[in-house]
Amino acid sequence: MSTKRFLYLTGVVTLIAWIVVPIYLIAIGAFSGRAGVFRWPKSLWPADASLQAMQVFMQIEGVWNAALNSVIVAALCMLFSVLLGAPAGYALARFSFKGQTAYRLLIVLTRAFPLAILALPLTVNFIRIGLYDTTLGVALVHTALALPFAALVSSSLFMGIPRELEEAAWVFGCSRFQAFVKVVLPLALPGLAATAIFAFVISWNEVFAAAVLTVRERTLTAYLLTVLSESPLHFRFAGGFILIVPSVLFIFAVRKYLFAMWGIANR
């Protein structure tokens, strides 16, 4: 085996281990019950693997409701981020207007304020408007978190699509909107899918805003935070495992689009 190949394989193994080992440890913790969590050294495949912890976990009151809330919030956040972020990105990419650079900076600046500072005024206002303790309320805050990235990423996405393609569509009979739908959108779709997934994952993993702005309609992260702090360790592992799985599965499902993003020829 040549040195080059050896280095390459080492790199691959390291990267895989970086991702897989923590997930594996959490999975073992989640499936091996009370005793298994404290056993050392860890066995590769726990002899006493059981679904007991998971089953108990699934039966905790409110978990399913919280999971459903999480999915709703993340889906709404994804929807809002793309629907608002993509047009903003398109405007940034295609039109030159006064204060464009400032606007660009302003977008990033929205992330400059720590959520902890905004939490109290947000709570007060949400109670006043009636958004407090609703999935929509949490989704809106999560959208605020994800939107800057959605706008900036999609703007560079649209910049990568030659203007000539759109002009060709106009000349051959498209209105501005038709050209966007028929030519720009299909080319931007893989990138937009990646943007959407990113928004989904941001929302799915966010815990602070979700914990502050809800009481009963908690998302899974916020719910687990309160429930699990009082639970035995193997339940916490089960909760952690449940939190990881959707993100991983989701990214796995759309990996084709993520890879296609790099394979597209623009000309």
Binding site: P162, E164, L165, E167, A168, A169, W170, V171, F172, G173, C174, S175, V183, P186, L187, I264, A265, N266, R267
Partner: peptide
């Protein structure tokens, strides 16, 4: 009039052939 109502066709410098 917008381009689509002018009844013309165009060939662009970078071809602008739709890749998809």
């Amino acid at each position: 009039l917008p381009p689509k109502e002018r009844g013309l066709a165009m060939v662009f410098q970078n071809y602008a052939v739709f890749p998809h």
